[in-house]
């Protein structure tokens, strides 16, 4: 039943002459949360940006290897299609400053020229904001600018914006690193809830967070995949010495 929705094989990423991601192979199980951990600069962001092809924005980036989505070559698809199926939430909240909360949630549709009826719009907005645990806080102010919200609320707005597109996979790059503990725990609850319908890949520096929410964890070190295990296993008996050192806080 639990098949791999996404599979990375022998992925190498070079930016300019620097070899950043080194021969990584790993699969992602459907409706699981996979945590990607590792010291700063080890290539976590670079790795997950290959999955929705955001690395193509860097002119000097070169990728070898294969990524498959449902068994089909990701790079054979149109990048626009890939990005609609694979949503992304960034490290810093980045709502569109010219748009209201309502329009921010709908941005993926409106910017793509999809026309929706008033009812469909209301439904999508309400649904996405509820899933992102933001509805109660903003339901009376939907037409205010998204940038009036607090940092944590903005991040949840960005999550709602990604969820509104009904992605199959959600990539999250340290989504809680700029947030306080309360907003963080909000988002963690939300991720566990979301797992029912979406496959999640989350980059995090927060070891406790990974252990709380993830099913499996990948540990990257200097661009290499050192260990990829079920979270429970890795956090109790890490196989590699570097993983162990990272988990007890020796670096990063």
């Amino acid at each position: 039943m639990n098949q791999e929705i996404l599979k990375i094989q022998n992925l190498n990423v070079y930016i300019g002459d620097t070899h950043i991601v080194k021969d990584i192979s790993m699969g992602f199980l459907r409706k699981n949360i996979t945590a990607v951990m590792g010291p700063s600069g080890c290539g976590k962001t670079t790795l997950i940006r290959c999955i929705n092809r955001m690395h193509e924005l860097i002119p000097t980036a070169k990728v070898t290897g294969e990524i498959t989505l449902y068994g089909r070559d990701l790079y054979a698809f149109n990048p626009i299609y890939v990005r609609r199926k694979i949503g992304m939430v960034f490290q810093r909240p980045n709502p569109f400053p010219t748009m209201s909360i309502y329009d921010n949630v709908l941005a993926g549709y409106q910017l793509n020229g999809v026309s929706l009826t008033r009812q469909e719009k209301d439904h999508i907005v309400q649904d996405a904001l509820k899933k992102a645990a933001l509805w109660e806080e903003v339901k009376d102010n939907l037409h205010r600018k998204g940038t009036f919200l607090s940092g944590g609320q903005q991040q949840r707005l960005c999550i709602a914006r990604a969820l509104a597109m009904k992605p199959k996979i959600l990539l999250m790059d340290e989504p809680t690193s700029a947030l306080d503990p309360k907003a963080t725990s909000h988002i963690e609850e939300l991720l566990i809830e979301l797992k029912k319908s979406v496959t999640i890949v989350i980059v995090t520096h927060n070891i406790a967070q990974a252990s709380r929410i993830s099913d499996s964890t990948a540990f990257l070190y200097m661009g290499e995949l050192v260990e990829y295990e079920s979270t429970k296993k890795m956090f109790t008996v890490p196989k590699d010495k570097r993983t162990e050192e990272y988990l007890i806080g020796k670096f990063g």
Partner: peptide, 26 residues
């Protein structure tokens, strides 16, 4: 900020529309 452009592209919005509908209004 670059992150704004990335936010739009990551939603599957084509480049030209990102520039015209997100970056210019901002």
């Amino acid at each position: 900020p670059k992150t704004l452009k990335e936010a739009s592209l990551a939603l599957g919005v084509p480049y030209y529309r990102t520039m015209l509908s997100v970056i210019l209004p901002t």
